[in-house]
C-alpha cells in the first residue's frame, strides 16, 4: 500500500505541483539556496553515505560540482536517495533539480520520459556476478542457462537480461526486487545464483557482501550503459549549467588543472587555461551561462578535475580500484571528450 500511496502522490504532484518546474530552475535553486540532487539509496563508489552520513561517490561529487558552479560553494547541495523506480518521477515532478544516480542514457528516457541527459560521466556495461565458492567451474555468462538471476526492477538491466538470455537461447528465472538492499540480501542468502547490474555496480556491491572474495564478476559485458546526470526538459539554461559543469571537469583534467594547482593556474600564460578559469579580460563565458565567471575555479576547488574525482571515488584511491579504461580522456585513448570552452 505504501508504494501505491507514493505512486499516487507522485502522479498527483506530477499533475499539479509541476508548475514549480516551469519557473527557471536556476532561479528556484538560488531562492532555495541549495541544489536538490537525486542519488541512489547507497551504491558504493557512486553515491553512498559514509559513516558520518555524508554522501560520497562519483555521482554525489558531481552534485557538489553543480552546487559549486551555481553558488561557489560545494556544500550547498541536498541529497534525495531514490530507488530505480522512483528516480524519474522525482525528477519530472520537480522534487529534485538534477538526477545524478548511475542512470543509463537511453532514447526512451530522453523522449517519452521527458528527460535531458547532459552527458556520460561513466561509460559502463552490464555484467554478471556469481559466488565462485558455490559455483566452481562457471567462468562464462554463457554457462548460466537455468540459473536464477537477481535483478533490480525499473532498470535497463532487467531489459538487457531478457534480451541476452533470449538471444543466446538460454533459460533463466528472474528474481526481481525494487530496492537495492532487497536484491543484495536475496543474493547473499542464496535465493539466486547470479547478480546482474552495471559492472561498476557489481564491484561496489561485492564490497558490501558477507565475504567479497568469494564472488567473481564474469568477463562478459552484455550491454552499453552510459551513465550520466539528467535534468527535466523545457529549461535550457539549467540544462546548460549542468552539462557544462560536466565538460568543465573534463576540460580541467585535459589542461592539467587540479584541486591543488587551480589558484596558481589562474596566473598561467596559456590563454586557454586563462579563458577556462575566467581570467580573460571582460570574459562573459560564466555570466552567459548564468553563473559567475570563476565557476570552473569553484568546481575544481570543490571536487578536483574529472580524473581526480574518478580516482578518489571509484579508481585507485578507492576500495573499488576500477581502472580508467574507456573512461580515460580522449587524449589518452578513452571516450571522455569536452567540446571547447570558448
Amino acid at each position: 500500500m505504501k508504494h501505491i500511496a507514493i505512486g499516487i502522490l507522485g502522479a498527483a504532484t506530477l499533475g499539479l505541483v509541476a508548475s514549480a518546474a516551469s519557473a527557471a530552475t536556476l532561479d528556484d535553486v538560488k531562492a532555495k539556496g541549495f541544489v536538490q540532487c537525486g542519488v541512489s539509496t547507497g551504491l558504493a563508489g557512486f553515491s553512498a553515505p559514509d559513516d558520518k552520513g555524508d554522501w560520497q561517490g562519483l555521482d554525489a561529487d558531481f552534485c557538489r560540482a553543480v552546487a559549486a558552479a551555481v553558488f561557489g560553494d560545494g556544500t550547498k547541495v541536498k541529497f534525495t536517495p531514490l530507488s530505480a523506480k522512483e528516480r524519474f518521477t522525482a525528477l519530472q515532478s520537480g522534487e529534485i533539480d538534477v538526477l545524478s544516480r548511475n542512470t543509463t542514457w537511453t532514447i526512451n528516457r530522453d523522449t517519452a520520459l521527458g528527460l535531458n541527459f547532459v552527458g556520460v560521466t561513466y561509460y559502463d556495461g552490464q555484467g554478471f556476478m556469481i559466488n565462485a565458492k558455490k559455483l566452481p567451474g562457471v567462468n562464462s555468462a554463457l554457462q548460466l542457462s537455468g540459473a536464477a538471476v537477481c535483478v533490480q526492477s525499473g532498470t535497463t538491466t532487467e531489459l538487457n537480461l531478457a534480451d541476452y538470455f533470449k538471444t543466446n537461447k538460454m533459460e533463466y528465472s528472474p528474481v526481481v526486487f525494487e530496492q537495492l538492499s532487497e536484491v543484495d540480501a536475496a543474493y547473499d542468502a542464496g535465493r539466486c545464483d547470479v547478480y546482474t547490474t552495471d559492472q561498476s555496480g557489481l564491484y561496489g556491491i561485492r564490497l558490501t557482501l558477507g565475504s567479497p572474495a568469494d564472488h567473481v564478476v564474469l568477463p562478459e559485458i552484455i550491454s552499453k550503459e552510459p551513465l550520466g546526470p539528467a535534468v527535466r526538459q523545457g529549461d535550457d539554461q539549467w540544462y546548460h549549467i549542468v552539462k557544462w559543469t560536466y565538460f568543465a571537469l573534463l576540460q580541467a583534467e585535459e589542461l592539467g588543472i587540479t584541486k591543488a594547482n587551480v589558484e596558481e593556474m589562474k596566473a598561467s600564460d596559456n590563454p586557454e587555461i586563462k579563458r577556462v578559469l575566467g581570467q580573460e579580460a571582460d570574459t562573459k563565458i560564466g555570466t552567459d551561462l548564468g553563473v559567475s565567471n570563476d565557476w570552473v575555479v569553484n568546481i575544481v576547488k570543490t571536487v578536483g578535475n574529472y580524473g581526480e574525482m574518478f580516482e578518489r571515488t571509484v579508481g585507485s584511491g578507492s576500495p573499488l580500484k576500477i581502472a580508467r579504461g574507456i573512461n580515460a580522456l580522449w587524449t589518452k585513448g578513452g571516450l571522455q571528450y569536452s567540446p571547447p570552452i570558448r
Binding site: 505512486g7 502522479a11 523506480k85 524519474f88 519530472q92 528516457r109 525499473g154 532487467e158
Partner: peptide, 15 residues
C-alpha cells in the same frame, strides 16, 4: 510499477 518505470506513464499506470 515496473511498466510505469519503463514507460514513464505514471498517471496512467496509477489510474
Amino acid at each position: 510499477g515496473t511498466v510505469l518505470n519503463q514507460t514513464g506513464q505514471a498517471i496512467e499506470c496509477v489510474l
